[in-house]
Design a protein around this nucleic acid. Structure first.
Length: 216
DNA sequence: GCCACCGGTGGC
DNA sequence: GCCACCGGTGGC
């Protein structure tokens, strides 16, 4: 049973603000979902401009996505519209361990191993579990992924310290790390280009020899 | 008169 | 073509 009219807390807005999703039941737009927000005083808001006018300078809604109720990166906000449905599918797959998460796991694996190796904390510190946790965190959260900031979990693996972060020791990815990784990618691309060029030339030579053989 | 709800459309 | 936004209105 889906609760389609429940007012939910909205962590991206000040305390007391609620978000409500209403599915249209009839008409040409049946199935469409309308999103409303309620101020702590119960005033109803049905658009981002309306919300902005009311909140003024007290809350910066620049990165606020009205539909999801979450703060997100500006670039993501732009591209968000068309991708929302696909993204939901991908999130479902990542939770189920399907193919949707594979490119991110590969990226996380290559990147973290090469620039800042991470290690787990808690009961299960296997690479697979750890990388899946980080990939999932990257998928599900728009906040920075930093790992756990205390070593208390090592003393008591039964506790979950910070549910918003994967169970790995604290790590920081610096701009320098990213630049170095970019250089590695550029170098790898050049190597691949060279290999493909060489392969293309070899095939061309082979093909022209075949033609000559047939003509003879 | 209020407001929940759906339609219409401008902007992208 | 999609959808955020807001106008309009039927039901109360």
């Amino acid at each position: 049973m889906i609760m389609e009219k429940k007012r939910m807390d909205c962590p991206s807005l000040p305390p007391g603000w609620k978000k409500e999703e209403v599915i249209r039941k009839s008409g040409l737009s049946a199935g469409k979902c309308d999103v409303y927000y309620y101020s702590p005083k119960g005033k109803k808001f049905r658009s981002k401009p309306q919300l902005s006018r009311y909140l003024g300078n007290t809350v910066d809604l620049g990165c606020f996505d009205f539909r999801t109720g979450k703060m997100m990166m500006p670039s993501k906000l732009q591209k968000n519209k068309q991708r929302l449905r696909n993204e939901n599918l991908t999130i479902n797959k990542s939770v189920c361990g399907g193919w949707g998460v594979l490119p991110i796991v590969l990226f996380v694996t290559v990147f973290l191993r090469s620039c800042c190796p991470v290690s787990g904390v808690g009961p299960d510190t296997s690479d697979e579990t750890l990388l899946t946790a980080i990939a999932s965190a990257l998928h599900m959260s728009s906040s920075p992924i930093t790992g756990q900031t205390t070593s208390a979990a090592e003393k008591n693996p039964a506790i979950w310290l910070n549910t918003s972060q994967p169970l790995c020791k604290a790590f920081i990815v610096t701009d320098q790390d990213i630049r170095e990784q970019e250089l590695k990618v550029i170098q790898a691309r050049r190597t691949l280009e060279d290999a493909l060029m060489a392969d293309g030339l070899a095939r061309a030579v082979e093909s022209s020899r075949d033609s000559e053989d047939k003509a003879a």
